[in-house]
Design a protein around this nucleic acid. Structure first.
Lengths: 261, 261
DNA sequence: CGGAGTGTTGAGGTCTGTCAACATCTGTGG
DNA sequence: CCACAGATGTTGACAGACCTCAACACTCCG
């Protein structure tokens, strides 16, 4: 299954003559493979060596909540989750989206209580792990500790990407970049990427991207008009993405003018 | 218009009649104390138990660079640092500011190489620690591991705050929030906060906040006109902040209208 | 069927970016 | 000491991107 995706991607970029301009394709494939391996490896290790509790969640369920005392970390086995923080003055902000292999609850380490809500966006399963048990297990198996640190580091890097996206991209490009990120996240985990179901309202997407829901709606319409995406099904949350790399190209083109001068 | 807001805010905290409505003041003090303790504790522990190398840096020096192979973590003993990432398509983004007690290099854990530049903004000292040595030391002293995890978690929470700031605040409020953050960071570390020296150009501040340098300049002028800040010295990088809580109030007021409906 | 929730689209206003001119500061060299 | 250039900061005029408000369409579900 990975195979076909890769050939498709390779062909798409070859056909368009983009190889020299978009050398990222090969690099992404490389990282995709190693990332998938890393996730599987960590999941396996934790599963074997750390006492854990499996918990099935449904859309809207909280995995952990802001203010709750810290004690557990959560590894996502399946499902998609959003992380939402609430500021003291009442501002609400979607700060992250999480997929299989990602961890939840890291923000609780800092001050002894979680500082955000992690909410399931569809049915899924998380593994509940006592932090103490994890540390204990890591004493006999170093790779567990490494896996933990790598996961935290990935979170950090990812959130910096979000910040850069919000700070440097136009509205349309932010939406395109968001879709690219979503599709790539699925792709890295071996899930189908040609058709995706957004599990968020326009308002939530806008919140995440620092846009209003109307701007998100308009951006999606423009992307559809440009055939970068298509609407599948009768609802307007199912998208077809014929070519993810075309979305990347769109984002890059939108910043290119600024670089020419 | 600004004037009334400020006096109100100033009076609120001075009179103490509003304690119930503004419990943040006490809470911040509390957190300030414990945060300072925690920093000192971690620094002491690491200093005693982990082999490290002290390195003096000057403005413009790189502590670590994107692309460089990961191997070390860095604890800031003194100085102020900026963290800058460069996207594949050439966008540059200041993603974080770091002070005494913060760590540098976490982003290197994820993929075996650092993904950002950490650059000193003035003279300071960092402690260079081999990651392996740190893990080794943490086997005999659990608090070292805890300190590491708390530091990473703090980074995560902090960057989410940045994202929320950029996504939800107006330009002026973002600049005010930035100054508040800077002042509070100094305060938490026991440094003087009534007068601060910005070690960044308007362009860098704007980059960090998702604004142009002109917008930053205008925002600072407006804040000065409102007496929320004052310019000290003949350069325009030395600021007086008569009342940090007035800056917080300004930020909160700027979002209040949205909450009334 | 009807209502609630969600999504789309248009018109108009506002905030911020763009472009430009000018001011200020710093350091260099005469 | 002054002149000068370059870097940085300020301010104004204007344009454009995004937000706000509003009307309408679609889907789901009792």
């Amino acid at each position: 299954m990975f195979g076909t995706q890769i050939t498709t991607a390779a062909r798409a970029s070859a056909d368009l003559g983009f190889i020299t301009e978009v050398p990222k394709v090969a690099a992404v494939d490389e990282r995709t493979r190693s990332f998938g391996q890393k996730i599987a490896e960590t999941l396996r290790l934790v599963n074997e060596r750390v006492p854990l509790q499996r918990r099935v969640v449904h859309a809207g369920d909280h995995v952990c909540q802001a203010g709750e005392a810290f004690g557990h970390l959560y590894i996502i086995n399946s499902g998609i989750y959003k992380v939402v923080t609430l500021s003291p003055d009442g501002r609400e902000q979607v700060v992250a989206l999480k997929f299989r292999g990602d961890w939840l609850g890291f923000d609780g380490l800092a001050h002894g209580e979680y500082s955000s809500d992690a909410i399931a966006m569809d049915t899924g399963e998380v593994w509940v792990i006592r932090y103490e048990a994890l540390i204990e297990a890591s004493r006999s198996e170093r790779a567990i500790l490494t896996g933990l640190h790598e996961a935290m580091s990935r979170d950090l890097v990812r959130e910096r990407d979000s910040l850069m996206s919000v700070c440097t991209l136009s509205g349309d490009a932010r939406v395109a970049d968001f879709l690219r990120y979503w599709a790539e996240s699925l792709e890295k985990r071996g899930l189908r990427t040609d058709q995706i179901t957004l599990r968020m309202t326009r308002a939530e997407i806008g919140n995440y991207l620092g846009l209003t829901l109307e701007s998100v709606s308009r951006a999606l319409s423009r992307l559809a008009r440009a055939n970068l995406i298509g609407f599948a099904g009768k609802g307007r949350r199912d998208l077809r993405i014929p070519d993810v790399s075309a979305l990347s190209a769109f984002v890059q083109d939108s910043v290119a003018p600024a670089l020419l001068q």
